[in-house]
Design a protein around this nucleic acid. Structure first.
Lengths: 349, 349
DNA sequence: CCATGCTTTTGGAACGATCCAAATTTACCC
DNA sequence: GGGTAAATTTGGATCGTTCCAAAAGCATGG
């Protein structure tokens, strides 16, 4: 009954055509659910597809149709739960739209970033979602991705000459306002000596968060001492290490707005090591609302950014861009939400 | 000087060939660094490639060569830091080998899993790394991925008739031994009434962990009361909710071996709500060593599984499989390491 | 100048799908 | 039955690359 499937080779549309005595064109129409084909033939073809275990070769179709069915997702740090959630959100939407996610992780290295983008571009993605590594250069990125593939910049601005990249869409968090809210909250709790702790002052998100902090301090008529602006690598380890800088001469702060949750959790450990109990002797806030923020001791007051929703949003934005390639570039700034927990109590009497 | 690049269309190898007056075949040879081509011509072609901003179309090449340059990575829960780290490890190795990662996240849904696999298969990956959703059926998976694409099963066994899938490679954690070590540790601390908390008893990893626990209890001559085997969805939320089950009649346990860290952290919260202080009034252990395990209150005794290294290992295993498609299938069981922290102190006097 | 062997280059047919214009079949009406 | 319109099917070219066998170029030596 019928031919046997081919050996050592995948079943193609021609195999199906031969198997049920129609042309390749007809099989192709069936595959795409065209109403042109007679339901009799359709049934016959579909039966044969099943019988031979045909799987569609999308690469071949894309080649002929000059289309693409993939989106590149390039992240500076996939291991960070924030980006992992983001990626899950992106994939959720892309998957349901029939696109496939090409993943690339750069581990915060601009070199790897260029290499990864170069490699992904060879697969001709329909669009790119990029959360750039710190210090990524606009010109270099541009020459890696070209000018024809739509790109959505997430989370961070790139450095260098941005004017050449003004056709990119952008999706950023409202860092400045978030940080301002956190600072205002600490002020409302009665704190007067408040530090901004962590991050690299050259990264765009850190600048924005510092601005929000400075704004709030200024509005409240509070001064900022230079040693209250402490930089550190935005991870727990370095945050522990740099803790002492907060207390090097001058007026010691009684609270700190931290660059993000990881830094805040690190600072908590650092404070412990100095004999200070965070949440009682010293107030602090984070940024991101990573899972552990709710279960730290004490639970961390922070800014929720709902990364999964951001991922969905990013995917939707890039889909819209594909719909209307010529529409004006869009910059979206999403609000963040202050979650008050126990780490930001009033100052000690 | 020279032709202008084409408009509204990507630069192809023919454009380059025309641009410097050689045949397509020669350009192709240059691209692949063939020693056949004269270094004069090579220079001319390379100059033209730069000038026109050519990007290689790997899909077309793969079609002609009947090869593939992608690996599908399908995960049951990308948002889980364990799998995020795993994915980062996979991508790290694949990226450096010139492969690209096709990501798919199934959110623990077997339906989505089949859909995702179907969609990814259409892109013809060279191999698949799959961490199956709970309850995935061997037959269904097999019919989704076919028998020709090598598959590496990670983390969990699938259910149903496994015999048809015995050509798959496997990479599992030594759940049973890990759990046994944790239990033995609690016993050594002096606990006699020890529960096994969380997970679904039908999932293979939960079964294995329970076995390790049972083994240790039996060896120590300790009995296990039925209400000490508590099931819950392996996340924090449900772990909090099911806490009371531990104390519903019978002898109350003084310690629990938890299915994983998320569950353990949830149980900590649940204990708090009952007025018990974890680590002092009740000892517990986790599994995974997620980042927050080290900073919870108290820090959690758990089993380190180094997911990033597992990711790298998985990528390497699948690469090896591609090298030797006919080699005997391999099952790798990686040991886990007990990390003793403060949550597993001796019982209260 | 031709034969020989080496290096370098090249047309044209693939790969597996889609598009398109044209051919074929079917249905319907007078 | 013939004519017309609609429904269905179909070759053959094409997407951007690689493969292959064969051609062309170029020394060398007799």
């Amino acid at each position: 009954m019928g031919n046997t499937p081919p050996v050592g080779r995948k079943v193609t549309l021609s195999d199906i055509a031969a198997g049920c005595d129609v042309s390749r064109a007809t099989v192709s129409l069936v595959l795409r659910g065209s109403p042109l084909v007679n339901k009799h033939t359709r049934a016959r073809v579909e039966e044969e597809l099943r019988r031979q275990g045909y799987v569609y070769n999308r690469a071949a179709a894309n080649l002929r149709r000059r289309t693409s069915s993939s989106i590149a997702l390039v992240l500076n740090d996939l291991a960070n739960p924030f980006f992992a959630e983001f990626a899950a959100g992106v994939d959720e939407v892309l998957g349901s739209t029939g696109y496939v996610t090409l993943l690339g992780s750069t581990s915060e290295s601009t070199e790897r970033e260029l290499a990864v983008l170069g490699s992904l571009m060879e697969h001709g993605p329909a669009g790119i979602i990029l959360s750039p590594a710190e210090g990524s250069d606009a010109q270099q990125l541009l020459s890696a991705v070209g000018t024809t593939t739509p790109l959505l910049l997430f989370n961070r601005e790139v450095s260098g000459d941005i004017s050449a990249c003004d056709h990119w869409d952008r999706l950023f968090l409202d860092n400045q306002h978030g940080s301002r809210m956190a600072t205002e909250h600490l002020i409302a709790q009665g704190h007067k000596h408040i530090a901004f702790y962590g991050g690299h002052s050259n990264s765009s998100s850190c600048k924005q968060r510092r601005n929000g902090y400075a704004e709030a301090m200024k509005s409240a008529g509070l001064r900022v001492e230079p040693q209250w602006l402490v930089e550190c690598i935005p991870n727990r380890l370095d945050a522990v290490a740099q803790c002492e800088q907060l207390f090097n001469g001058g007026t010691a702060p009684t609270a700190a707005v931290c660059y993000n949750d990881a830094v805040a959790l690190g600072l908590m450990l650092g404070l412990h090591q100095r004999g200070l109990q965070p949440g009682r002797d010293f107030a602090l806030t984070g940024f991101d609302d990573i899972a552990e923020a709710a279960v730290s001791a004490p639970p961390l007051t922070t800014l929720a950014v709902t990364p999964r929703a951001r991922g969905r949003q990013a995917a939707e934005l890039i889909m819209q861009r594909l719909q209307e390639p010529a529409a004006a570039p869009r910059q979206t700034i999403v609000p963040v939400q202050l979650l008050i927990r126990d780490s930001s109590s009033p100052p000690h009497a």
